[in-house]
Amino acid sequence: MTPAIEIRGLRAGYGDRIAIDDVDLSIARGSLTAIFGPNGGGKSTLLKCIAGLMTPRAGTISVLGEPVGVAAKRIAYVPQAEQVDWSFPITVEEVVAMGRTPLIGPLRRPSAADRAAVRAALERVDMLDAAERQIGALSGGQRRRVFLARAIASDPEIYLLDEPVTGVDPTTQEKIMNVLDDEAKRGRTVIATTHDLACAAQRFHDVVALAGRVIVHGAAQLVLDREVLEKTYGGHLVPLSGGGVMLLDDPHHSHGSHEGHE
């Protein structure tokens, strides 16, 4: 079977800044993969290229064996929380219903099956009780769960999640990771960017270390490998007196000039 994602020689960036270069990556179907690396390392850029939201400068990407865009209905992309206007007058249920929109098609109304899928997705993330609330009234963790429900409602083969567990409480993180784990077990491919190395090591199967290029791609335990961390984070790694290292990395402060994209 073709891999879920196959990337060859990818180069992409904003303006005159190249965020990622020379990226080769093959992600198997049914894998649960975390992409980690420093701010400005190109995590979001890579995700956006796979989602067809950015045009690469060079290289090829195939998604489910097709060029980017052909299989758009079979992928679900969840943007970073900062990129959403939380004051938008819209309810939780309406947001989740958006997941059905591409499947329903233009000029048609949602069917009973669509509405059932929306409710089932809300139930999966424990947000059915909040269906009628405005999204701005939710906590950060609830907002993440609503967007995950939208992705679930679209019944995708590939989940692309930008920072799904950043800034959420441990209980929510547990719930989100349980759902993603279940989806991977069903053969769905899950790719998420993250700053949380502990979560990457414990809850994901595979990891990709990205710092402008792919440093390593392998089993999740690699995030705890000192050599991998040094190559990935460079100067953000501080040696401790006991012999270990500490990572100084703040998910909300980009060192590059494109914080909004990274």
């Binding site: 679900a76 992309y77 969840v78 943007p79 959403v84 958006m98």
Partner: peptide, 22 residues
């Protein structure tokens, strides 16, 4: 009215809508 759900999705979350093929 005819394009309501598409316009709503693209207005609220252009990234998610674009990735889903709208």
């Amino acid at each position: 009215a005819l394009l309501w759900k598409e316009l709503l999705y693209a207005t609220f979350d252009p990234l998610g809508a674009g990735a889903a093929g709208l």
